[in-house]
Simulated scan of single mutants.
Amino acid sequence: MSPHRQRTVTVIGAGTIGLGWIALFLGHGHRVRVNSRRAQAPRIVDEALELFAPFLPPGSADPATFSANLEFVPDLEKAVADADVIVENAPENLELKQELFERIGKAAPKDALLLSSTSTLGPDALGARMADSSRLVVGHPFNPPHVVPLVEVVAGERTSPAAVSEAVEFLTSVGRTPVVLRKPILAFAANRLQSALLRESVHLVREGVVSLEELDQVVTQSVGLRWATVGPFLAFHLGGGQGGLRKWLGTLGANLERGWEELGRPPMDEETINSLIEQAEAAYGDRSYEELVRERDTKQTAILRTLAEVSREE
């Protein structure tokens, strides 16, 4: 699979993740077929492209050319019939996804690359009803997929190593940073990290230590800024000074387990959920979804541009 040739990419589903993929693939000049059961899909996609296009990677195609490479094919079998890459973004319902991949397996070309954006399910489970699921790979993006580079690549026991290699090559060709997980694990890696931070965030807000809005400020003005440039291990390796992680683990990090025991386990009961919703609406409810998305993507693309410039100067 040549990394530079124009491909036909079928995107199944026009939800949040599917819309980001559509914008990204069009930005890289690919032909994109949208398969969606939503009658209003053309309008939804058009509005998303207008919102997302300014934040596509540098060098992306002119948005004015998108319509020439975009089509809507509600019939699944027709949508995948001669596709090079198929990206599934259906709801996290195993039975639904199994049915989709069973149909895809019968209708798609034998050499098509099959990707699922699932955040919880493995390829073997997804392809359990397929005669041959060797081309099925999980390619789990981090929202929004047209901005955030990470894609977790997960193979199953029946997945062909060649399919994994092609997934990495394709994702790299559209400007993503694929990371192949060495072993399957529930919820993969990035969401487990996010979930751990979210749990403690809910605990701190629920206990009244900080408000929801203040918690967001705590993260963006500290660990969020740090993690945009270095990962947790490099951060603490640097935190050890000249002695690195070895020194840090022997001093400041010596009581990590004791600290972990103090982390919260907040119940997600009705009271907690209502409190979080009320605080979120009080903090952010006076601004539209589109306004918040533009601000988020403006800041995230600015960070990515700056990091790219720094890398070029090194």
Rank of each mutant, 00 (worst) to 15 (best):
R5I: 12
Q6D: 09
Q6H: 11
V9A: 06
V11N: 01
V11I: 12
I12R: 00
A14H: 10
A14G: 09
I22M: 08
L24G: 05
F25N: 14
G29T: 06
S36E: 07
V45Q: 08
D46F: 11
L49M: 07
E50V: 12
S60G: 14
A61L: 10
P63E: 07
T65E: 12
S67R: 13
A68Q: 09
N69A: 13
P74M: 11
L76G: 03
L76I: 04
L76A: 01
K78Q: 13
A79R: 04
V80Q: 06
D84F: 14
D84E: 15
V87S: 11
E88Q: 11
I104Y: 00
G105P: 04
A107L: 06
T120M: 11
P123F: 02
A125W: 02
A125H: 00
G127F: 02
R129P: 07
A131Q: 10
S133Q: 13
L136V: 06
V137R: 02
P141R: 00
F142H: 03
F142C: 04
N143G: 02
P144V: 00
V148I: 12
L150M: 10
E157H: 10
P161M: 04
V164S: 04
E166C: 05
T172A: 13
S173M: 08
S173D: 10
L181K: 04
P184E: 08
A190K: 06
A190C: 11
S195F: 10
R199H: 06
L204R: 08
V205Q: 00
E207Y: 05
L212W: 05
L212P: 01
E213V: 00
S222M: 05
V223K: 03
G224W: 02
L225A: 07
R226Y: 02
W227D: 02
L234K: 09
L238A: 14
L238H: 06
G239P: 03
G241A: 08
R246Q: 13
R246W: 12
K247P: 00
W248R: 05
A254Q: 10
G259F: 15
W260G: 10
E262S: 14
E262F: 15
M268P: 01
M268G: 02
E270M: 15
T272Y: 05
N274V: 08
S275F: 00
T298F: 11
K299G: 08
Q300E: 15
R305L: 13
V310H: 13
E314A: 10
